[in-house]
C-alpha cells in the first residue's frame, strides 16, 4: 500500500509541477492544488498507514487498538485549510490581475511596460513615462 501511495504521490507531484510550469496562471493555480494534494498524501503516508502504531494508551497500559495515528490527519487538515485559503485568495488575485493587466500569461506580465526594470542611469533619458 505504501508503494502504491508513493507512486500516486509521485504522479500527482509530476502533474502539479508540469501545470505550475505552464505559462497560464490558472494552470499554475490548478498545479498548486494538485501539488498540495500530493504533499498531503505524502504526509499521510509518512505518518504510517493503518493502525499498527496505536497512538492512545490507557493509564493501565492497555492499548486502544482500532485507532490510527491522528496527528498526520490533523496536519493534513490544517494544510488543506491553509491551501484552501491560499487558493481562494489566488483566484481573486488572478481575477483582479486579469482585469488590471489584461492578461494571465506569466510571460506577458513579466514584460508589462510599466513594471519592467527602469532604465539604468547610464542610459539615455527615456521619453516615455516609466513612473510608478
Amino acid at each position: 500500500m505504501e508503494i502504491l501511495l508513493a507512486f500516486l504521490v509521485g504522479g500527482l507531484a509530476a502533474v502539479g509541477v508540469y501545470l505550475m510550469l505552464r505559462p497560464h496562471l490558472i494552470q499554475f493555480l490548478i498545479g498548486f492544488l494538485v501539488l498540495g494534494n500530493a504533499a498531503n498524501l505524502l504526509i499521510f503516508t509518512a505518518g504510517r498507514l493503518g493502525s499498527q502504531f496505536p497512538p492512545l494508551v490507557q493509564p493501565s497500559g492497555a492499548v486502544l487498538e482500532p485507532y490510527a495515528n491522528p496527528l498526520p490527519q490533523a496536519l493534513i487538515l490544517t494544510a488543506i485549510v491553509i491551501g484552501f485559503a491560499l487558493a481562494a485568495f489566488g483566484i481573486v488575485l488572478f481575477y483582479r490581475a486579469q482585469q488590471a493587466l489584461g492578461t494571465l500569461n506569466a510571460e506577458t506580465i513579466l514584460e508589462a511596460p510599466d513594471v519592467s526594470p527602469a532604465p539604468s542611469p547610464v542610459d539615455e533619458l527615456p521619453t516615455e513615462g516609466v513612473r510608478r
Partner: peptide, 13 residues
C-alpha cells in the same frame, strides 16, 4: 495599482 498586482502575482506564486 497595476504594478502592485503584477508584483503581487509573482510574490504569490
Amino acid at each position: 495599482s497595476k504594478a502592485q498586482l503584477a508584483g503581487g502575482v509573482k510574490y504569490f506564486a
